[in-house]
Design a binder for these strands. Sequence first.
DNA 1: TTATAATATTGTAAATATCTAATATATAAT
DNA 2: ATTATATATTAGATATTTACAATATTATAA
Lengths: 104, 104
Amino acid sequence: MNKIPQEKIKRASEGLRAIAHELRLSVLCHLIEGDKCVHELMEATGASQSNLSQHLTKMRMMGIVDNEKRGQQVFYHIADPAWGDLVHVLQHIYCPEMCAEQPL
Amino acid sequence: MNKIPQEKIKRASEGLRAIAHELRLSVLCHLIEGDKCVHELMEATGASQSNLSQHLTKMRMMGIVDNEKRGQQVFYHIADPAWGDLVHVLQHIYCPEMCAEQPL
DNA sequence: TTATAATATTGTAAATATCTAATATATAAT
DNA sequence: ATTATATATTAGATATTTACAATATTATAA
């Protein structure tokens, strides 16, 4: 009864791959707390400018994040809050102590 | 306030990678409906025996699925129901029409 | 206009992941 | 014992991903 079309599974797996990387997932976790410009994300993650930019571009192209230019800075934010929910599920799996008794 | 330790992020990204593949995600979707033996998963996914077995092994080693021998068959099941929840979040993103008005 | 700061893009070598084919193992049936 | 069935493992060629360095772009400041 849960018949998911193959094409959707393919796109979903591509979306997953877009966050299945230590640095990209780290960025996502920081963006959950609010918009951040590239510079802030560099400091928060310790990644190099070039490397971070490439990963941000990848996530933007996959529809995970979106960006917006303000002055000379570019601010990124999570495109669909469901990606934040997905991170919360991950926390339930890998950081159960942080989730305490909260249900999904 | 949502400070997630880097080590957890690393492990979570590894877990994500373990399902961020069309075939592996497809298997996961089938396992949501209940335990399946390798043979059934072969038919359901159309993958070759060898290829499927390798992907199942990878998911088992990453703690996504677990298996159990019954007679001459090996049945796989989702190890932690939270992985099923994660697939549901993906459905909200990529198959919204299937989720109708259900919240997470 | 020149310089500086913030971000993006490109080229590329190294690492990782993937698939197929072949082979191995273990269990059940004859 | 032999054969058949179900699943796992290994080897190797190809494809994809990654990180770093260098360069480009764009907007602001001097």
